[in-house]
C-alpha cells in the first residue's frame, strides 16, 4: 500500500477485506485460464489446419522474402519520418495560433484542429485519392498517403502542444516579462522549451500512432509494410503467417521507438529537472 497508485485506488475504492481478496484471486485465476484456453485453442486450430508447419514459416528467412518486406519497412519509415518532420512543427504553429490573442487567428486554428481531429484519416486519404483528382488535383501516391498523415497528426499534436504550453507554471510568463523579454521571446525562450519537455512522452505516442497510420498506404498502393504484406499474401497465400510476421515487425518498431524516447527523456531529466 506504499505505492502512489495503490493509495490513489484507495481514495476511489475501499480496500478489499479477506473475502473480497479471495474472490479477486479466484476471478483472476479463472480469467487467466480462459485467456490461455482461447490462445491454446487458436494454436491447436492453426496446427490442425497445418498453419504451424515449418514449410509455411521458413520462407520468411529467405533473402527475397526479407528484401520484399524490408522494402516495405523502408517505405513505412520514410512515410512516418516525412510526416512527423512536417506535422510536429506544423502542430506547434497550430497550437500557438489557437492560443493567440488575435480572435480570428485563434478561431481559424481551432476550426482547423477540430476538423482534422474529428474525421477518420481514411476519409482524408480517400479525399486525396478519389475526390480531389475529380477536380483535376492529383498528387504522387507517396503524398496521397503522407499529406493526410500530416493533416491529421498536426491537428492531434497541436492539442498536445497546447496542453504542454498551458501546463508550464504561470509564474514563468511573469518571470519572462519581469526581466524584460517580449511576449514572443518569453514564448520561444522560456515557455516552449519547458512545454516540449513536458509533452515529450505524448509526442512519442503521436509518433507511434503516425507509424500505425502509415498502414493506410495500402489504400493508395504506397510500398509500405502493410501494402507489401498484402501483396505477399496474394502471391504466396500465406495469410496468417504474413500478417503475424508484419504485426511482429510493427510491434518491435514501436517498442524501439518508445525505448528511445525513454532514454532521451531520462537524459534530459538528468541534465535539468524541471523544478
Amino acid at each position: 500500500m506504499s505505492t502512489r497508485s495503490a493509495s490513489a485506488t484507495q481514495v476511489l475504492f475501499d480496500a478489499p477485506g479477506p473475502r473480497g481478496r479471495a474472490r479477486i484471486r479466484l476471478l483472476s485465476v479463472l480469467s487467466v485460464l480462459a485467456i490461455a484456453a482461447v490462445l491454446g485453442l487458436g494454436l491447436w486450430q492453426f496446427g490442425r489446419n497445418g498453419q504451424l508447419a515449418a514449410d509455411k514459416w521458413l520462407p520468411y528467412l529467405r533473402r527475397d522474402y526479407l528484401a520484399f518486406l524490408g522494402e516495405g519497412l523502408l517505405g513505412t519509415l520514410r512515410a512516418t519520418a516525412v510526416a512527423a518532420v512536417v506535422a510536429f512543427p506544423f502542430g506547434l504553429l497550430l497550437a500557438l495560433g489557437r492560443l493567440s490573442r488575435l480572435r480570428v487567428l485563434s478561431a481559424v486554428a481551432a476550426a482547423w484542429i477540430e476538423f482534422f481531429r474529428g474525421i477518420p484519416m481514411l476519409l482524408v486519404v480517400y479525399a486525396f485519392l478519389l475526390a480531389l483528382p475529380a477536380y483535376g488535383v492529383t498528387f504522387p501516391r507517396f503524398w496521397m498517403l503522407v499529406i493526410p498523415m500530416i493533416l491529421v497528426s498536426s491537428a492531434t499534436t497541436a492539442e498536445v502542444f497546447r496542453a504542454g504550453i498551458r501546463a508550464v507554471d504561470r509564474g514563468q510568463h511573469e518571470a519572462g516579462a519581469a526581466i524584460g523579454l517580449t511576449s514572443g521571446q518569453t514564448m520561444s525562450a522560456v515557455i516552449l522549451p519547458q512545454a516540449v519537455r513536458l509533452v515529450l512522452p505524448s509526442l512519442v505516442l503521436a509518433l507511434v500512432s503516425l507509424l500505425k497510420d502509415s498502414t493506410l498506404g495500402y489504400v493508395v498502393s504506397v510500398n509500405e509494410l502493410q501494402f507489401q504484406g498484402k501483396t505477399m499474401v496474394s502471391i504466396t497465400r500465406y495469410l496468417v503467417q504474413t500478417y503475424l510476421v508484419v504485426s511482429g515487425i510493427y510491434i518491435v518498431l514501436n517498442i524501439l521507438l518508445t525505448r528511445a524516447a525513454h532514454l532521451l527523456d531520462a537524459r534530459m531529466r538528468r541534465r535539468a529537472a524541471t523544478g
Binding site: G171, Q172, E174, A175, G176, A177, A178, I179, G180, L181, T182, A189, V190, P193, Q194, R197, A272, A273, T274, G275
Partner: peptide, 20 residues
C-alpha cells in the same frame, strides 16, 4: 515596457529562474 523592464532589476519570490 520591454525597454523599461530591461533597465530595472527585478527579484521575485521563488527566484523565477528559468529551469531549463
Amino acid at each position: 515596457p520591454v525597454r523599461l523592464r530591461r533597465s530595472i532589476g527585478y527579484v521575485m519570490q521563488a527566484s523565477g529562474l528559468l529551469p531549463h
